[in-house]
Write a protein that binds this DNA or RNA. Structure first.
Lengths: 159, 159
DNA sequence: GTAAAAGTTAAAGTACGCTTTAAGTCAAGA
DNA sequence: TCTTGACTTAAAGCGTACTTTAACTTTTAC
């Protein structure tokens, strides 16, 4: 019979230095439901090691433009009660991959649009699908498919 | 001898509906020095037609993640006093293209990192350069080149 | 001429993603 | 035990990118 060794828990400063996030950010993420923590009898936070993976994921996600809402949504696919397995992370990977693919497609489309529109110097507002204001307006309607859907929606808050 | 017809100027609501920006955004952009406007004797704004191109550019830039500071910097390459020429826009296109290329590279790197890291299920925090928190920390130091430089810098403000 | 639509300003408000501050509590080593 | 460093909370503050509000003026249409 195997007796499981209890995993050593991490303090705030340990998690902060290992994850690269400020302690205030860790508290903020906890308040936002992105990570969780145990508490000592005195009320101090103690983290499980797997929080580091969640945090690394959060960092990468933020770097490619996901909002915290989106990150929470994706992380919602992970189990809350146990350390995520390979299958758990694989499912997330698939979700995120399609998001990245669509963002990459969008950037390529804009870049190539620039080549043929600004770049060529034709300055034809009527024909240019990237810069024509009328097409931009139309892009919010039902018929426009030049940009991937998420880039045709209104921009999120600050960013 | 050719007498130039004066270009008809556009009202705020015309520019708003043609560009897809709210009137308040137009005022904001003017305050930020991204666009300019003439004034009627009564103080109302009247826009030159080429403001539509600037605005379309701003929208596209925002959609791919440029901040207004960056947009201003790029638009600073355009002449303030005359309607931009092919050469003006071409210069900008080149500037922006390299920015887009680096952002695309970054996304591809992260996506491919996911495939081999999350995707493979190895869960090796020590080896994974995308998700390893120690590598994330190191990425802000001098030696890390996995992510393009601009994605290794701290994230800008909101989002 | 007059009423309604459109425009003006300054200032305040909003959302996101945190950080900073203030005032006090807990944990660990000498 | 004591002191120092780490930690706690609630609340306020900050930067970006705008929008909303309030009070008022200009333009346009009839």
């Amino acid at each position: 019979m195997v007796i499981a060794m209890p995993e050593p828990l991490l303090t705030v400063s340990e998690v902060a230095s290992r994850s690269g996030f400020a302690a205030s950010a860790l508290r903020y993420y906890e308040g936002e439901g992105l990570i969780d923590a145990h508490r000592t009898s005195g009320g101090q936070r103690r983290y499980e090691r797997n929080v580091l993976r969640r945090l690394a994921f959060i960092r990468a996600a933020r770097h490619v433009g996901l909002t915290l809402d989106e990150v929470r949504e994706v992380l919602g696919e992970l189990p809350r009660s146990r350390t995520p397995t390979k299958a758990d992370w694989s499912r997330i990977s698939a979700l995120w991959r399609s998001r990245l693919d669509s963002q990459i497609d969008a950037l390529v489309a804009v870049r190539d649009g620039l080549d043929s529109c600004i770049g060529c110097g034709c300055l034809s507002l009527k024909k240019c699908r990237t810069l024509n204001p009328e097409d931009v307006a139309a892009a919010y309607g039902p018929g426009a498919n030049y940009l991937p859907k998420r880039l045709r929606e209104p921009l999120p808050g600050p960013g």
